[in-house]
Nucleic acid binder design. Sequence first.
DNA 1: CAGTGGTCTAGACCACTCC
DNA 2: GAGTGGTCTAGACCACTGG
Lengths: 262, 262
Amino acid sequence: MQRMASPLPPSHQPAGSAAGNAAPVFSPLYQQIKALITRGLQSGEWKPGEIIPSEAELAVRFGVSQGTVRKAIDELAAENLLIRRQGRGTFVSTHHEEQVKFRFLRLVPDGEPGQTLRMERQFLACHRIRATADVARTLGIKPGDMVLEIRRILRMGGEPVVYEDIYLQSASFRGLTAERLERYQGPLYALFESEFGTRMVRAEEKIRAVNAGEQEAELLKVPAGQALLSVERLSFSYGDQPVELRRGLYSTAHHYYRNALS
Amino acid sequence: MQRMASPLPPSHQPAGSAAGNAAPVFSPLYQQIKALITRGLQSGEWKPGEIIPSEAELAVRFGVSQGTVRKAIDELAAENLLIRRQGRGTFVSTHHEEQVKFRFLRLVPDGEPGQTLRMERQFLACHRIRATADVARTLGIKPGDMVLEIRRILRMGGEPVVYEDIYLQSASFRGLTAERLERYQGPLYALFESEFGTRMVRAEEKIRAVNAGEQEAELLKVPAGQALLSVERLSFSYGDQPVELRRGLYSTAHHYYRNALS
DNA sequence: CAGTGGTCTAGACCACTCC
DNA sequence: GAGTGGTCTAGACCACTGG
């Protein structure tokens, strides 16, 4: 493999000897390896939770040194796409892990330390509708295309805390029904990843404070006008493709949204 | 330098030959280097904005290979303590940089793209008071110890957007006066770092939605009861020492709090 | 025990910055 | 051109996991 822009012939090329003619732009070898591994993840060659080939094996396959593969994997691990486990191997990240849950669930109960927060879910709706203009734009589809809308309430310790509207590209989630949602225990993202091959990798949120309307107040058992956290989340899968839009209202009477700036 | 727990004799020790007797716990060499560099930052040997010695020089000084120094610096750069600049050197991070501002300023105007947001500040108070119990506990000082309290309003485009109460350990900020605050242009954190040797490295925030009280509503020019974002931020300096507590109210009528989950 | 990732070294050359 | 960080290689040994 040689230093180059985008295509990736499998020929080996020692670091020193540059190709005779000047090529336009070069990207480092380990970046190319990174892209190749990402492609393997995206294509489903290695599924969430599965092990990927060892560093040595990948080094042989790609015709580079183990150190170069290592640097590629290091970055993918830093981006939470892979997880290294010493003595065992490198695995594809999955939402089926206790540890990962708090990456996307930021609401914390007020009572300081590690409370075991048992959470109940109640699904209010799960149906297919035509995307409104703004939902379509955000998800990168055409206005009028079908989207799957899920409405739900989350309760922590019996108290309603989150009211959420979730929009998914209908095409990617064929067969997702209210009954399927009810039956599944665990995070939605785990269900999406296991049953529909869509893994959420990162997300962007826009957070505001809003006054509760009549309906919302009733659902969350708060007085009308109560200040609520409005969280609009756009989630991306491999390759920065937007696949889910959430509009949530959080009751922060007994919980707060935890954030780390670093 | 050899693989060991905490103290760091400057003797060189090739990787293979372990010290004869089993020692209790070993930390990797690059972690020890990392700690040494951090100590240099903390002690002020290298100040924000300044350059630190080259990798080669540090390798000689610490008696390790350049690769080991590199790995230590890599991690410190990932933690935003250092910044690498190819061809120039490695520098201590500083708040005197356009690029860094958005790491701690999360409020974004609604009008989508890169608007130039000119921001005005108005200081309402800057005085020394005795710490209340909860402020003292959060800052890790004794109740009744003196703290510096700063109250201010931030306006973006003339519109009041943030009302903030800031608490600092009085001892670390001797000589900080209202007049000094008024005179200084730029982020507070830049002032703290230049004039008082305290650099904010990371922070934790607790975010809630609250209804505006009479006073707050008047200050932010919103109706009483208006939903506001309540942001409590605890900032840490080198060595995870808490040094600043902020309690802010954000008006999110025309701005939102941007967050990235990754 | 074999196999994995984790650490460390030594040395090469490249890309960039500044004088 | 000298000096910096950035990439890449090859090889060694360590620490951990599992059969």
